[in-house]
Each structure stands twice: as structure tokens, then as C-alpha cells.
Amino acid sequence: MRKKLVEFRNVSFRYGDEGPWVLKNCSFEIYENEWVAIIGHNGSGKSTIAKLLNGLLFPQEGEIIIDGKQVNEASIWSIRKEVGMVFQNPDNQFVGATVQDDVAFGMENRGVPRDEMKKRITETLSAVRMQDYRLIEPHRLSGGQKQRVAIASVLAISPKVLILDEATAMLDPSGRKEIMDTVGSIQHLNGLSLITITHDLQEVVQADRVIVMNSGEIWKEALPREIFREKDALRKIGLDVPFVAILADELKQAGVNLQAAPLNHEELLEDLWTLHSKT
């Protein structure tokens, strides 16, 4: 049986005692070696979920369980060993004087032996293609490069749960794809729970499961394919639909008898090819 690594039980949260509820009675589970994308418009509560996951915030109602442990004041230090987080703005998460110092920082705090640290620095910096920048000062890097280092720093502490909170938002499209491929392969190697909080449709397509947030509530939880069928409903809650889903829809309107809802160009072309060669 798959191990449950993250569980939200009827979680509600608001900032202050008077504020509006940012999360309302949210429940979901995430398993090991599973990639879950959380999508939603700005202010839908998705980043609050990330902050609750490693005890940056605590819920007023409900419980959050990480790898069998409830998140509370007493457990946050052990929870934070399990939950690695990369945020949107890389400037806010740099501490080291050089790239390799920065990657080492998290490991130093966790008492990783020196030889192991050196090995992991090389591994993770290569994984994000920053191995040539080991001795560079962070302020000399571009935003995208900084973010790659931030991802390497988190991967270096080998957490069980990795959260990317719009972490690729500042990268260019090809950089974004490389990062997603990288974290995808590391996820499978280590059996990580990967949680990507994103607007990027490509990241949603790659996920095993999608949780759609709207106004603090879970609006839907399903496979990417099922989510993108709800084209009009997604638009209504401020989200976008991939080009391929829009084109598939238009093709059906034009009388092309497509079999399934395609998730990418290749699936759609395959389907069209089948129709094309029938005669």
C-alpha cells in the first residue's frame, strides 16, 4: 500500500481573529511518490496551504498530519526536516556567500557529514545545471539561476515532501521545463511527494493529480485530463485552459470525431492520425 505522507483534515485558516476565512474546511491526502499540482487564482488559498504544510502558519480549525506526525509548535522542527519548500522569489531565500555555501547551509543545520555534503552539493548543482557556478556570489546570478540554486539547496536535504510554491514563475519557458524535468526525475528516484503550486499549465499536465482551489475551498480534485474538460468552469474561476484542450474542443465543433480529451500535442496528433488513415 502506498504511504500517506500529507493529510489535511477539515482545515480552516484565517489571518487574525477578525479576518475572512482564507481556507474553509479543506481535506485532502497526498501519498509518497505522488505529484500533486495545486492550482487556483491569486488569493484562492493555495499559498496558505504551502505555509501550513511546514508550520509557518497553524490552522485555527482542523489538523495537518505529515508522515504520521501532527504539525504543531512542538513538532515543527522535525516536520521541517521532512518538508522542503521553494518559494517564488529567490532573493528572499538566499543565505550563503557563494552558491555552494548556500546549498550547504541547509545541510549544516541538519548535521550532514562533510564528505556527504560535498557529494550532495555536486549532485544537486549538476541536477539544476549550476555546477559551473559553485564559487559565484548569489547576487551576481540572474533570477532564474538563483531559483535553480534554491531548488538545489532544498533537494540537498533530501526531504520527503517537496513543495514548489510558484517556484518556476520567474524562469523562461525552457528553463522552466528543465526544472520540472529535474524535479520530476528526483521525485521518482526518492519517492518524494511533490506538490507544485502553479499557474503554469504544463506543470499541471505533468502531475498525477490536481487540486483546484477557489475562494479558500477545494473546488475539484481529479486527474489533469478530467480537470481540463471543464473548460468553461475553469475560466469562470479565473484559470486558463491549455491550447490543446481548446483546439480539441474547436475540432469537435468543426465535426472532427475525436476519441478522447488529449493532454498534449502528441496525443491529439495521434488521434487525428487514426481518423485520417481510417479511409
Binding site: 491550447f243 474547436e250 475540432l251 465535426g255 472532427v256 488513415s277
Partner: peptide, 19 residues
Amino acid sequence: SVEEIAQTIQQIIKGAESR
């Protein structure tokens, strides 16, 4: 537009069917 692309593709596919 995507609609126009869909119509062009539809015609290419239909062309194949009627052949």
C-alpha cells in the same frame, strides 16, 4: 484563430475520408 485552425484541419481530414 484556434477556430480557423480547427476548420483547416477538419478539411484536411475530411479530404482524406472522401478519397
